[in-house]
Design a binder for these strands. Structure first.
Length: 427
RNA sequence: GGAGACGUGGCUGAGUGGUCUAAAGCGGCUCCUUGCUAAGGAGUUGUCCGGGUUAAACUGGACCGAAGGUUCGAAUCCUUCCGUCUCCGCCA
């Protein structure tokens, strides 16, 4: 949510953002409703002030009659106010965040800009297979039985693949929780951010509807799993319950930046992607993800995102995977984002870069709805929030396809071997 | 899931229809005194939404777990929900 004062003072900037983000919001209507809302508020509040001052202590019968009249008038005004506030709030929730200045303007993914490509795409002396072929042949990925038991877009991950997921997560945790390694990353990327380690968290995977709404992640609802018996949603990312963890709290300024790394299963209905990426585990209803979430001072949030991207790149480089960094354009980014940067990792089987990581700079868009603040010079301000993928299941696809051999086996990246009992290949 | 108790400011805790503009204590902050691993005194104290202001000052309203309701008037009465605790049951 944006600050209504900001919208009042900068209607053109907001209109531009609405247009570039393809949001369906009438800013002029919003401002008109805001004006009306404040008018009603003023008259209803002064009426209430009158009522308050007159209703002190026991009343004479005439006094009660007079107060009854004030009450009736007040109720009438208040009814109108409730209605208009509801409308006001509805539109406010739809206003998207303002894209950062360096966000490319564009209507869809064709407007995204590749910032850099890193790592050499290695040629194979044979035709590289797709991950689902490798997985099936090595008996580490079973979609057929998963379909039988759970339906389409589910998988069983088995044997070396199951082990590799845990290895990947453990490797990432070892980097993110170690200030020494973070310091190295900061130095290498020439950044000026503290080396505060990420606090590991295993968050809940259920979330209440109102909290989901405040995170700006409830929509599109068709994408969410809803448990009607308890009116709860399944999260689509650990971000959803990590970001809302400090809802309605003041974070002490000396605790900023506050960084978390959360592991959870992510649930996605994948509505609207019928027939797309049906094979294997690229697009599934359920996958595991390690997610970074950080709360910072407003002036630090952009470098925080740069830092987070540097961490992502550092770890992908450690896995020796070729990738590209992509600035997502206004029309393709999420409504709560100010700046979205994706990392696409090379997948030789598909002969394409595919999205494996994303990084979202939310500025105060979420914290304003969630009321997450800090105090500075006796004033309260909203924190800024960043969230980003550390690793998700898709990275395993990139590893399988890049590390495959002619015999159809999959070698294990060096940095992961120690987390897999020294295993060097899945065969 | 069953039975019972409870939810008040940063914390402890009083308040069962009007004097609550929420007592008192602790903590925090500011100043004073004293003089040294400390003590004492005075003052101050939250959040949100309006108005006002360059910014403040100032000012109106709301907030006692949440949402509704009763009443001229609700922390206090009623309803629903959420949460916490105790006991029982079930259980990785």
């Amino acid at each position: 949510m944006l600050d209504i004062k900001f919208i009042r003072d900068n209607p053109e900037i907001v209109k531009e953002a609405v247009k570039n983000k393809k949001a369906n919001v009438d800013v002029d209507e919003l401002l008109e409703i805001d004006k009306k809302r404040r008018q009603i508020m003023e008259s209803s509040e002064s009426l209430k002030a009158e009522q308050n001052s007159k209703s002190k202590g026991p009343q004479s019968p005439e006094g009660i009659e007079e107060l009854k009249k004030i009450k009736e008038k007040f109720k009438e005004l208040e009814g109108g106010l409730t209605e208009i506030e509801k409308k006001f709030h509805e539109i406010m929730l739809k206003v998207p965040n303002i894209p950062s200045e360096d966000t490319p303007v564009g209507v869809d993914e064709s407007g995204n800009k590749v910032i850099r490509q890193v790592g050499k795409i290695s040629g194979f002396p044979f035709k590289p297979k797709e991950h689902w072929e490798l997985g099936q042949e090595l008996d580490i990925l079973d979609s057929e039985r998963a379909a039988k038991v759970s339906g389409a877009r589910f998988v069983y991950m088995k044997g070396g693949l199951a082990l590799m997921e845990f290895a990947l997560m453990q490797y990432a945790l070892s980097v993110l929780t170690d200030s020494g390694q973070l310091k190295k990353i900061i130095k290498k990327a020439k950044l000026d951010v503290p080396d505060t380690p990420f606090i590991p968290v295993l968050p809940p995977v259920f979330i209440k509807p109102d909290v989901f709404q405040k995170m700006g992640r409830l929509e599109p609802k068709e994408e969410r799993y809803h448990i009607s018996s308890d009116n709860l949603y399944l999260i689509g990312s650990a971000e959803h319950t990590l970001g809302s963890m400090h809802m309605d709290e003041f974070i002490k300024i000396e605790n900023l930046p506050l960084r978390y790394v959360g592991f959870s299963t992510a649930f996605r209905r994948e509505a609207g992607s019928y027939g797309k990426d049906m094979k294997g585990m690229l697009r599934v209803h359920q996958f595991d993800k390690l997610e970074m979430e950080s709360f910072t001072l407003p002036e630090d949030s952009v470098k925080e995102q740069d830092f987070i991207v540097a961490i992502q790149e550092y770890m992908i480089q450690d896995l020796e995977l070729p990738y590209q960094v992509v600035a997502i354009c206004s029309g393709d980014m999420g409504a709560p984002d100010a700046r979205q940067i994706d990392i696409e990792t090379w997948m030789p089987g598909q002969n394409k870069y595919r999205e494996t990581h994303t990084s979202d700079l939310m500025t105060d868009f979420q914290s304003r709805r969630l009321a997450i603040k800090f105090k500075r010079d006796n004033k309260s301000e909203f924190v800024h929030m960043n969230d980003a993928t550390a690793f998700a299941g898709r990275t395993l696809i990139a590893i399988m396809e890049n590390y495959q051999t002619e015999k159809g086996t999959v070698k294990i990246p060096k940095v992961l071997q120690k987390y897999m009992g020294g295993l060097e290949a899945i065969q």
